[in-house]
Design a binder for these strands. Structure first.
Lengths: 345, 345
DNA sequence: GTTAGCACTCAAAACATGTGAGTGCTAACA
DNA sequence: TGTTAGCACTCACATGTTTTGAGTGCTAAC
């Protein structure tokens, strides 16, 4: 059987209708549309064919049709309209984006927030772990019982942690430890450092400071480990409460589990293809089989530094959402091109 | 009418039963209990009296009794058992607490996590902005274009920020700035400092470093402002999904709104009395009228530096929860006391 | 004062019925 | 030959009815 024009038109209408209403779509409803002027009976025949071809399903005999994952895929690839955002929408987005640009490292997080506000879906942002080479390491005195550990990366990123120590120390000791740490680990990437037995190395190089080391090293290791973590921000979770597909608590819980199981979820996100990617239903991992996921990257000087996207029901306004995501990432990329030039001075 | 012993015993049984079952408690159920050996009819008479006195309510004529807020209050104040935690429970808690003590500023956050795990409720931690006196201020070199600002409070809390500077600096300059800043602001509370014209003071005391100051001070001010924010951590939100009172989505959403409206919620928390405080139902603000809130403080050297607690249904295991909170805060306080003693030597 | 007994209440479960949006099929039509 | 009207059929859902059972309140007897 072949997907002729009329079948495509009907399929498109079913998907579009279902996206709007979240209700199975019947033949009579479709026959009332302006762009379809055949009788319900004809539509039924076509829908029956479409079902046979795997594009539609039937919750039960006397219900309307619901799009299958295959139908959504076809819809996204071929059928849906690619409307440009209106100038007003663009202005709104740009204005929202501008409100969060003071703090450099919050930019992505903020962009994800804007994304959720514009789409009324759950949005997220993830910073993939990059080649994070250490430049130097510094232990600094704070007070009798704590020190600050400062790790500077070659990228310029600085990581600070306050560490509690349970033995007295002198400033010289700290300087010594800083020197040893920097000497041993400077130029290495964080994950390489973590493969080593850090405690042993400190004890070897600073036998006289064994007590200090045992007090400080665990915090040091923990900080390094944390630097490896990809950061995952989730925004707009409350949007699920408004969607009809989440009117029972179990579903709400499922989404909550997905977005709070950060390790697993960020893994999923990091492993995606580059660019604007839409995955629907069973194209995702099993726990996401009832959802659609849309992601896009943003880059600084051509290097991918973050990814953001939305998680929502398969019944999603794909055209709007992709437009918004695309506009936001384009904007971010542009911002950073300019910033990048300023930095180079 | 008087609350005689039998009435108290029955009331206690009703509350305890309802806390366990979340179902209205009937007279027959109570009559089966070992500690009550009067007939259902007698119990009914007593319950009828208790209802008249405002301790019990009746969802409908043919249903069992449900405790009123007044009953919960009496239960917490007088009726409930104050069981000690078992040694095993204590061990579990202490072990969990120990897993998160390397990073000083995460201690409270971690404790709140432990609290939610032990109680299966939503827990939170808040660092009130009260009495946040600065101990000293330190500008540290990172690389050519950035320095780290480290602010240490008397409470031991450390705040770090990377600040970008757009003029060359020497280590001596930074030391000078650190000294001036510490001299000027040490012992003052953050909000007091912010009322002053910080830029002018730097320029007055360090006229030779005007360029540096103008580059660094905005970041300094911003960091101070951020220190005024109370931090609110919420843990264990997913526990609400398991509670029968939250089986419809609206309720789940209510809790979500409460704990994510961080400004408002932290205001509520900060404004509470000190010590172990239990508020139930209409003792809370209207949006919390269906919940009970338990908080306790933790102190460093006798000074309150954080508050943590749980949010749950009024039907809460008050005895267990208060025991756990008390044990956790005692532990935190102790940890910090010991450190204080070590410090003194 | 306590309790057995009984009539009464009412939510919730179980069952029955009607409604309507939908289908699939067939036969007639253009 | 594709399209459509017509009709029997299906089935979720809403509505109405009945049954059940846990609970109460009252009264009279112990």
């Amino acid at each position: 059987m072949e997907l002729n024009d009329r079948k495509l038109k009907i399929l498109q209408a079913v998907v579009a209708d279902f996206i709007n209403s979240a209700e199975p779509v019947g033949s009579r409803t479709l026959s009332k549309r302006d762009d379809i002027d055949v009788s319900p009976a004809t539509i039924r025949n076509e829908m029956s064919d479409l079902e046979e071809m795997g594009y539609l399903t039937h919750p039960h005999t006397s219900a309307g049709r619901v799009p299958s994952d295959k139908a959504y895929r076809l819809y996204v690839d071929e059928l849906m309209s690619h409307s440009e955002l209106s100038p007003e929408e663009k202005d709104v987005i740009r204005e929202k984006l501008d409100q969060g640009t003071e703090e450099l490292d919050k930019t992505l997080e903020h962009a994800s927030k804007v994304l959720s506000e514009m789409t009324n879906l759950v949005s997220f942002a993830v910073t993939p772990k990059v080649e994070n080479k250490i430049k130097y390491i510094n232990f600094l005195p704070v007070d009798e019982s704590s020190v600050v550990l400062m790790i500077v990366c070659e990228s310029g990123r600085v990581s600070n942690t306050a560490i509690r120590v349970n033995c007295p120390y002198t400033e010289e000791n700290l300087t010594l430890m800083s020197k040893v740490a920097t000497h041993n680990y400077s130029g290495m990437s964080v994950d390489t450092i973590l493969t080593q037995d850090i405690m042993e190395e400190f004890e070897r190089d600073l036998p006289q400071l064994a007590a200090m080391s045992s007090s400080v090293v665990p915090g040091f290791v923990k900080t390094l480990e944390k630097m490896l973590d990809v950061d995952l921000y989730v925004n707009g979770y409350k949007n699920v409460f408004a969607l009809p597909e989440f009117k029972d608590v179990e579903k709400v819980k499922d989404v909550y589990d997905i977005v709070t199981n950060k390790d697993q979820f960020s893994q999923v996100l990091v492993n995606r293809d580059n660019g604007l990617v839409v995955t629907i239903g069973d194209e995702n991992s099993p726990d996401l089989k009832d959802f659609a996921l849309i992601t896009a990257d943003y880059k600084v000087n051509g290097k991918m530094v973050g990814r953001l996207g939305v998680l929502g029901p398969k019944r999603m306004k794909y055209d709007e959402v992709t437009s918004v995501i695309k506009y936001i990432t384009d904007n971010l990329n542009q911002t950073f091109e300019i910033e990048g030039e300023v930095d180079d001075e």
